[in-house]
Computed example of a mutant assay.
Amino acid sequence: MIPPLTPFGDRLSATFAAYGQLCVGIDPHGSLLDSWGLDDSADGAREFGLRVVDACAGRVGIVKPQVAFYERHGSGGYAALERVLAEARDADLLVIADAKRGDIGSSLAGYGEAWLTPGSPLEADAMTLAAYQGLGSIEPVLKQAELAGKGAFVLAATSNPEAVAIQRSVLQQSSRAGSTVAGAIVSGVIGWNQFQADAAGRAFGSVGVVIGATVDLAASGIDVDGEPPRPGLPVLAPGFGHQGAEPAEFRRIFRAFAGGTIVTESRSILGAGPDGIADAIARRVDLVGAAGA
């Protein structure tokens, strides 16, 4: 049996200290591949991902490959993704696989084995999860993550307008009756982190949430005022840059959760092209660092 690694939350804390809180998305969709002079194919997606990894190494600490843009190329796309994941981890980047998996029982455990098992072809440091069937349904993956020193990010409040009706729905029958769905997920994840055996000694829990930077947090029932949770709550926050949120505003937006916020940008950085991406990353790192000072 492979021994447990350093908890993901501890590695996230170390990454923040070394490189700051910026995360670069790796999203090889067709228009970007074209602008980079690459074919819209598995080979193009692989080359794109490797170039992004090379630009990120030594400049930023976290990358987030969007699995869907590789899946669309079938088996060749998965082979390309495996290579990108391996190269990113070899470059000492913290890798979050944006897979958004959700199911129940053994099916969900299988997803966890695929993305969070040390030595797996698709091994990442963390993955994104959907808990439509309730937080209890993803418990197998959360346990797998803790045992392997990995992380997980649970969708809580996304910025797409179609999600509002569900995410802001008020629970009627549960231990968190009266909470919104989004608020209950955030509270449940905080509780999960607090009940881990070594919680008191952790800067951050190993399970976090996904909250869009353009979301109306108050309307979604997410309380970001008051004291930060202990251990800190990792927040994967897409929506900066191209989608409208300003990286310099991340502390104002997330307040009590700002210390654990992963400021995620994709197209606004990737759009700089292969010749400009390194400079774009450096500028964003400085901007996010200044905002967090």
Rank of each mutant, 00 (worst) to 15 (best):
E162F: 13
Q167K: 12
F195P: 03
V95Y: 14
S106A: 05
G212N: 13
E123M: 04
P4D: 10
G74M: 01
T261M: 02
D34L: 01
I222Q: 03
G212Y: 15
G149R: 04
L155G: 10
V60G: 02
S13R: 13
Q196M: 10
S75N: 01
A99H: 03
V52K: 00
G208V: 04
I253T: 15
C23P: 07
A213T: 10
E82D: 06
I138T: 08
L85F: 08
E249K: 14
P231E: 14
D286R: 01
R51Q: 03
R101F: 14
G271L: 00
Y132P: 13
A182F: 14
L135V: 11
A148G: 02
I190N: 02
F8D: 09
D216P: 04
G201A: 15
L5A: 13
R267F: 05
G102Y: 15
A293M: 08
I166M: 15
F153I: 04
Q173C: 04
A290G: 11
A278D: 09
L5N: 09
V181H: 07
A165W: 12
F153Q: 07
Q172C: 13
S75Q: 13
G44F: 01
I62W: 02
I166F: 15
R267P: 11
I185A: 08
A213L: 09
R72Q: 14
V285C: 04
Y19E: 03
E82L: 04
A91N: 07
T6K: 14
Q172W: 09
I211H: 11
E227P: 13
A68G: 01
F240W: 08
K150N: 05
F16P: 08
G244Y: 06
G102K: 11
A14H: 03
I277F: 00
G271M: 00
E123R: 12
G292E: 11
D279L: 00
R267D: 08
